[in-house]
Design a protein around this nucleic acid. Structure first.
Lengths: 299, 299
DNA sequence: ATAAATGCGTGACTCCAGCTCACATATAGC
DNA sequence: GCTATATGTGAGCTGGAGTCACGCATTTAT
């Protein structure tokens, strides 16, 4: 039974040729040369031990045997195509769920969400707040957007978007008391930070050439917040100098609610798109591309 | 539409795996290793951008998407298999028509036809008298059995079975007047021959070292017959010495109706099986094999 | 008639999809 | 614990399937 099945590619070539009535046309449909199709047809003839086409003028026509085969195959192949198309449609019409930390969601993604929807409508994007520290483990999300540091686990796809930059920000009033040329003046204020990024201040300080001991002393008198939202409000209120990803405070810097006296520094972390399963790449690729271009124009 | 079709072999691997519920079992059915199937499944996952199987214990189960695809594919593939099987059955159940010259048919094939039918029943052999001089041109025959000389046209398959042998035969009474050691004594009798093989006597005479001029003189006084049947009857009746393929007079030699005083000589012709179309080889191959073995045991 | 265009078949060559092999990993049963 | 079963995967090899170029047959245009 099984050994009686000819190569499937030959059957496909036959079906296309029979349907179109031309080797050349079938070759075009299958994106190969007519020679390739011709060989496939010959191999089918040999497999079945009977001619399926005969020459007619400069073209070909089906023999009775060929017609019989065609009538069955065309049905089978159209069912095959339908099944694949149906699955593909199902997959593509399902919403693409992007998980994202609340701070990134609120301060960067949501302002761009409308344009994203308009420019990639076929994604049917839904966004959710990521509920775990491990970006790859979010099983109900198609992808996760997050800042994270290499190395990444081998069993997930991680697309690097841009390096993370962080900056120290303060209200304009407070900044007026600080020296843009001397980061040291920072220590005259209270240090503000989020609990989720304890390494931010040390990284910044080390990049600015500040003493580690002095920083630690200042940090112990500093103030931590649960969420970036509160941190920003505290900074705006002039409670002290906050450390935050530059990407998330750009709007505040532009509007003048906050200033960053000493500029930004780059960290070893990256803004990444995590793809938990190795699959649905063609849906995530346009998203990754969009994110990259969006991040490029913004900077 | 077309570019959305995944590789057919991957679909077949998926269908088998889904049907059997096991990669290993599918691999066995497809006569490949489980690794090969595993890769095909992975490529399908990537094509559709969705997992079609998920791990369950040490085996696998279909995901909802996988089940959906399977339900369509199993139908399509069974239709495909049915179509191919139906065609194959049609071809194999059609009678195999063997064309053959009347003399060969009557004096060699027919006596063996009963055994041939019994030993190759699936051939459903029919025999017809060939109606053309060109063995390959018999369009209504699946194959033609005939003596013929190389070279053969390039567009037909010709299977050589055995070299042709010819011999000069006479009735025992007439042969008593001839000298087995001296072919020359032949010329004391009338030469008998068939119109279809004018070159037989010259070939035989040349092999026996007889003079060409003497032969031609004798031939001009000889007697030609339309068919081998009449030639044989003339020889049996003692009208003269006939020249004929050894294969076709073996029974007469064995029974003593005729004798061949000077033995047989080999000619450049061959008993051949002509296959007009390059197809149905698997049906003609057993026949060719049978013919060869039959010819070997007979000699 | 002659020339050009169209369509199919095929020899020679190339290349990569798909296979095997071997090993890794994970689960089930003892 | 150990063993058997089942799937995943890196490395490497091979033959099937493709391309190219040409030949042949037929149709259409000049």
């Amino acid at each position: 039974m099984q050994n009686s099945m000819p190569p499937l590619s030959a059957l496909r070539a036959f079906e296309a040729t029979a349907r179109l009535g031309s080797v050349t046309a079938a070759a075009e449909e299958l994106s190969v040369t007519h020679g390739a199709v011709s060989r496939q047809l010959k191999s089918l003839d040999e497999h079945f031990g009977v001619a399926l086409f005969s020459k007619a003028g400069r073209g070909i026509v089906l023999t009775p045997h060929g017609e019989k085969l065609q009538s069955g195959l065309s049905e089978a192949f159209s069912k095959l195509r339908d099944s694949c198309a149906a699955l593909k449609r199902d997959v593509e019409e399902a919403p693409f769920t992007l998980a994202c930390p609340g701070s990134l969601l609120a301060r960067w993604l949501i302002p761009r969400l409308d344009r994203l929807h308009r420019e990639l409508p076929e994604l049917k994007l839904k966004v959710v707040v990521s509920d775990t520290e491990q970006p790859g483990k979010q099983t109900d999300a198609s992808a996760t957007l997050a800042f994270s540091e290499p190395p990444w686990p081998a069993d997930v796809d991680v697309i690097e978007l841009i390096p993370e930059q962080i900056c120290a920000v303060a209200s304009p009033q407070l900044a007026a008391q600080l020296d843009p040329a001397d980061p040291q003046t920072l220590f005259s204020t209270q240090l503000l930070y989020t609990a989720s990024r304890p390494q931010a201040w040390p990284q910044w300080a080390s990049a600015q050439g500040l003493e580690q001991a002095q920083l630690e002393a200042a940090l112990s008198e500093g103030q931590g917040f649960e969420h970036l939202y509160y941190l920003m409000e505290a900074a705006v209120a002039g409670l002290g100098v906050a450390i935050a990803p530059t990407l998330l405070v750009e709007d505040d810097l532009k509007s003048g609610r906050l200033v960053a006296p000493w500029g930004s520094i780059e960290t070893s972390a990256r803004l990444c798109l995590w793809l938990p399963n190795q699959t649905n790449n063609h849906r995530s690729e346009p998203l990754a591309k969009w994110l990259k271009s969006e991040l490029k124009t913004a900077s």
